[in-house]
């Protein structure tokens, strides 16, 4: 079991990874996020019809991607540098158990390219390519 707060510097309400299921640094990570009714952003997105904003699905993938790094990111300057080919196929709702899968496509000079997919019960909700820069 990976100690998530020890690895990622993100905290409530912006820590968007609950569990790391599989992890091979530099290669592949599978993580999980349980969407609850208590998520602060659901209050206004949208009133009476809560669904997870698509950009947060991308953020979930980016945070899951943080576990591709072997060491803790607490003192690391790491940023999202690009998003390509993002597709949102279906919304995520409270109660959904989201599977966040990221694989590394390669890295050069502190920049890593990741392919990510958010799925829920084998339905693909979101796929994207992310670029992450580590200074």
């Amino acid at each position: 079991m990976t100690d998530i707060p020890a690895h990622l510097p993100h905290r409530y309400p912006f820590l968007l990874v609950d569990r790391v299921l599989e992890r091979e640094p530099g290669v592949r990570v599978v993580a999980e996020k349980l969407v609850t009714n208590g998520e602060p952003y659901l209050q206004g997105h949208f009133e009476g019809r809560p669904l997870v904003p698509g950009v947060l699905l991308l953020e979930m993938l980016a945070q899951a991607g943080g576990f591709l790094e072997a060491g803790t990111l607490h003192d690391a300057a790491i940023f999202l540098a690009g998003v390509k080919d993002a597709r949102f196929r279906a919304p995520a709702f409270p109660g959904d158990r989201l599977r966040l899968e990221v694989t590394s496509e390669g890295a050069f000079a502190g920049l890593m390219k990741l392919k990510g997919a958010v799925t829920c019960e084998d339905r693909e909700l979101c796929t994207a390519t992310l670029l992450v820069k580590r200074l």
């Binding site: 540098a81 390669g106 890295a107 050069f108 000079a109 502190g110 920049l111 890593m112 390219k113 670029l131």
Partner: peptide, 26 residues
């Protein structure tokens, strides 16, 4: 820019099978 550099590194590896290992080689 540096994002293009990464794309090129990946492209060179895929198309020509040549790895650019580090920034010095780049």
């Amino acid at each position: 820019d540096s994002i293009d550099a990464l794309e090129l590194v990946l492209g060179i590896e895929q198309v020509f099978g040549v790895k650019i290992e580090d920034e010095a080689a780049g």
